[in-house]
Computed example of a mutant assay.
Amino acid sequence: MRVLLIANTLPPRDLSGAGEQVMQLAAGLRQAGCEVEVLGRGAGGARGPKVLFPLTVLPPLWRALKRFRPQVVQVHESDGGLAALLVVLLRRWLRPRPLLAALLQVSYREEMRSVRPLRYRGRVLGRPGWTERRFLLFKAPVQLALGALSARLADRVLACSAQTAREVERDYGVRGVGVLPNVTGGLPIAAAPPQAGDPPPGYLLFVGRLRIRKGVEVLLEALAELRSAAGGAPATPPARLVIAGSGEQQAALAARAAQLGLDDAVRFLGRCDAGRVRRLLAAARALVVPSIYEGMPLVILEAMAEGVPVVASAVSGIPEVVIDGDCGWLVPPEDPPALAAALRQVLADPEAARRRGERGRRRLAEHFTPAHAAARWLELVASPAGGEGGG
């Protein structure tokens, strides 16, 4: 089977969970015997800036349709909306006539809802900055329209979790959305070699873009509570936090860490490539994912692959991957005391945390590899019983 995957952001050029999932799926499908091409930006693909990809991908898509003659064309996220439209308009003249699939990592309407202040018991923990408010006003409505277009035109609509599938059905007005979980293990990414200035092992680790829905403000509050037990005595062992990522909230987060007296406990590393993230995970006590909204975060799977336990908010698709009490800890979102309590358990009993990490590694191997993704994709997309999708 010939499969054409279309995506705007692809590794190693871009740090993108959605783009990496395209490459993971491609690896799995190739192992399953499919002939796969990936169309993105760069040589042979779309030219120009990332923001214009929905338009600039159309000429190379037309050339790929004529040359490669795919049996399935799959678009991803809002960036594939116009590509989906072109396939639908042209496929009556194409032989074979390609089936159109759309894979969505989030509902853009739900992502818009997540651009809001973070609160705990009436107290504001953080507010979105101007960049995120501008996204809400201008970029998000366009993404919502193009994402809905992709879903409504597609013969098969896929989402990365059951929760995301329900959101897509509700927000885009489609039915029969199939679940294709995110996976890891199909790309050869080696841990970067140690560097001078690396944080000493045993820290708590956050990895991701620093925007309001990632909930790092909640994590800072939890860390402050963790480091000061009742009566002001420091927690034992002392908690340290490493933040790998950059983004709109970075300056506000650094200022808040200073206000909370966490200058010696929090280290901001900025944007890190995939190799450095692997090295950071290998030395971490736990990965912390305090988000208020996600699809199915790739970094959770990467932590599980390294045997690192996960402490995460029980939101979106996260509970479909992390089993509370088995391979990690799940806590309510926007709840610093609950998050602090889970982190205290991680630090107080490293051996119990290690066992949860090992169970996470086994769970990953059993459910979240490229081979699993390929088998599920072939069932959902290539099988005549895969479903109708779309509207």
Rank of each mutant, 00 (worst) to 15 (best):
R109S: 14
A151P: 15
E132T: 11
R121K: 12
V157M: 00
Q105A: 09
F135G: 07
L144I: 12
P141S: 00
L100C: 09
G122E: 00
G122W: 01
L136F: 10
Q143F: 14
Q105P: 13
W130G: 04
V157F: 01
S114F: 12
A101S: 13
A102M: 11
R156A: 07
R121C: 06
R116P: 11
S107Q: 05
P141R: 00
Y120G: 02
P117W: 00
R109K: 12
R133C: 10
D155K: 08
R97N: 05
A154D: 07
K139E: 11
D155F: 13
M112W: 11
A148W: 08
S107M: 04
V124C: 11
Q163I: 03
A159S: 02
L125I: 02
K139T: 15
F135V: 13
S161M: 01
R109V: 15
Y108A: 06
T131D: 09
A102P: 15
A148F: 04
V142G: 04
R123S: 07
R97M: 05
R127P: 12
Q163H: 10
R152N: 08
F135P: 11
A102H: 15
R156I: 05
M112V: 09
V115N: 03
V115A: 05
L136K: 06
F138M: 01
F138L: 12
R123D: 07
A148C: 11
L137I: 10
